[in-house]
Design a binder for these strands. Structure first.
Ligand SMILES: [Zn+2]
Ligand SMILES: [Zn+2]
Ligand SMILES: [Zn+2]
Ligand SMILES: [Zn+2]
Lengths: 136, 136
DNA sequence: CCCTGATTGTTATATTATTACTTAGGTACT
DNA sequence: AGTACCTAAGTAATAATATAACAATCAGGG
């Protein structure tokens, strides 16, 4: 569960705490609102903390949502890339390691001599739970 | 090169034209600026056209850039998903079909009974040309 | 003609992210 | 102690991206 990273600063710890407690992704401004009672006043306090947390691998940014989730993927540090399945009905996000898929993408980057630095894989759809409850 | 789609309306054709002429991705507001001489005045004129064009598969949205590219992928209609390699040095975007990768992602969705509706795959890095010129 | 649905125009506003500048703390060296 | 240096944090203003709400126009079909 723990990744290797420097000690978190006060603001980083506050933001990471909120994200860890949340049941799903939060936007930067949702975090700001949730942290006003902790003294947060300005977006930059959130964005700066998020930058570091993403850098440390503790938090992932979901590009298609402009939102952030705490990493709950046990093996995340072992993998170059995480993928996300985002339910458009309930908002839940499931993180997984698309190892085979990454192999194929890496093969493509080798063939093209593309120096990969970051990969985004996001699936949008409806999760099993929501599909089941819709049928009722 | 041509996809199956209804005739484009005036605004859709203007937006698609600009994107087709562009050498890389354009943001909605860049399109708006480029189309002011064609009578465009407001963001919605661009966003509404883009919505349709993306729907028709003529244009792709790059989530990690908040920008749009005309589809130049010959076989795009034959594939469920396109992937994009975005050079962070020159801004060029290369589209390709990650067929093997999608197979793996689809296997995951079947196992999880996740009803997939849309997939985003975006690679960030440095393209071959930029790597080569950096060495000079 | 009248109804309907799609498209467009226009204004205002919401949401997301960054720039610029300042203040505060800690560490290292003198 | 004093200074230089670095990182973090605070604050205000603004930029960039996206949508809501409502009015006007236009094309077909009955
Ligand atoms: Zn993770
Ligand atoms: Zn769901
Ligand atoms: Zn395409
Ligand atoms: Zn390049």
């Amino acid at each position: 569960m723990a990744h290797a990273h420097p000690d978190l600063t006060k603001n980083q710890a506050l933001v990471f705490g909120k994200l860890s407690d949340a049941s799903g992704p939060l936007t930067a401004y949702a975090l700001l609102d949730n942290l006003r009672e902790n003294g947060f006043r300005a977006p930059l306090q959130v964005y700066r903390a998020l930058d570091k947390l993403v850098d440390y691998g503790l938090v992932h940014r979901l590009e298609s949502l402009n939102a952030f989730v705490a990493c709950r993927h046990k093996g995340c540090a072992d993998h170059k890339t995480a993928a996300f399945a985002i339910c458009e009905t309930c908002g839940n996000v499931q993180e997984f390691s698309p190892d085979r898929a990454m192999e194929d993408l890496l093969r493509w980057t080798r063939e093209q001599e593309f120096k990969l630095s970051r990969t985004t894989i996001e699936l949008r759809g409806i999760c099993r739970a929501c599909s089941a409850s819709q049928q009722a």
